[in-house]
C-alpha cells in the first residue's frame, strides 16, 4: 500500500487532477493499492500500514505546503521509503537539510544521469518535463543521481530510502515512479 500525499493548496483542488491523478494512474498500473491523503488532513499521521510514501508536485504559484511543519516532521521520522516529486523534493529537502533556491524552469529539458540505483537506472541523457520555481541545493546528506545544466535533478539520501526528483516523472518518464513502487512493494 502506497501513501500518496497531495501537496496542493486545498483538498480536492483543481490542481489535484493535474499533479496527483497522473501519479495515481502510474501506481494503479503497477498493480499497487494506495491511499491519497491531503497534506493538511489529520489522517496524514496514520501511516503505519504503508510500504512507501509519494509526495506529489503542485502548481507553480502554490507554496503553502512549505509551512506544514507536521508534514516535514512526518517525512523526517518515517521508516518507509519516500519519493518526493518537484514540490515533494522541496519537502524532502526541508526534512533532511538542503537549501531551497529560486530557479524557474518550464518545459522539456535534458537530464544527465550521474549514478544509478534501485529506482533511478538511466544510462543515457533523456528529456524530462520541468515545472518549478524553486530547486534544492542538497547538503552532505544526499547523493547526486542525476543533474541538468541548471543543477541537481535526482538525489537520494545517503543512509535512508528517501529520493527527490525535481522534474515531473509522471510526464513521459513514468518509469521512475514505476521503479519506486515495484522496489517498495517487492
Amino acid at each position: 500500500m502506497i501513501l500518496i500525499i497531495d501537496l496542493c493548496w486545498k483538498e480536492d483542488s483543481l490542481s489535484h487532477p493535474e499533479f496527483v491523478d497522473p501519479i495515481v494512474n502510474i501506481v494503479k498500473s503497477a498493480g499497487e493499492d494506495f491511499r491519497i491523503v491531503h497534506h493538511l488532513l489529520p489522517d496524514l499521521e496514520k501511516q503505519d500500514d504503508f510500504n512507501a510514501i509519494i509526495l506529489c508536485g503542485t502548481a507553480l504559484k502554490d507554496n503553502g505546503f512549505r509551512e506544514n511543519e507536521r508534514l516535514i516532521e512526518l517525512i523526517k521520522n518515517t521508516g518507509v521509503p519516500v519519493l518526493g516529486v518537484c514540490a515533494g523534493m522541496q519537502v524532502v529537502a526541508l526534512a533532511y537539510g538542503g537549501e531551497l533556491t529560486e530557479s524557474l524552469e518550464i518545459g522539456m529539458k535534458n537530464i544527465v544521469p550521474v549514478k544509478n540505483d534501485e529506482i533511478f537506472n538511466a544510462t543515457e541523457i533523456f528529456e524530462a518535463y520541468k515545472l518549478h520555481g524553486m530547486r534544492i541545493q542538497p547538503n552532505g546528506n544526499f547523493t547526486l543521481l542525476a543533474e541538468s545544466v541548471t543543477g541537481p535533478e535526482v538525489v537520494k539520501h545517503i543512509s535512508k530510502q528517501v529520493w527527490g526528483v525535481l522534474f515531473h516523472p509522471e510526464v513521459r518518464n513514468e518509469w521512475v515512479i514505476g521503479n519506486f513502487v515495484r522496489y517498495c512493494c517487492r
Partner: peptide, 27 residues
C-alpha cells in the same frame, strides 16, 4: 501537449496568475 502546456504556464508566470490543466495526463 507539453508544447501547449509549457507556453501557457510561462505566460501565467509572467502575469503572476495560477494555471490549471485538469485534464493533464488523464486516462
Amino acid at each position: 501537449s507539453v508544447y501547449q502546456a509549457s507556453r501557457i504556464q510561462r505566460i501565467c508566470r509572467e502575469l503572476n496568475i495560477w494555471c490549471f490543466s485538469p485534464l493533464w495526463y488523464t486516462n
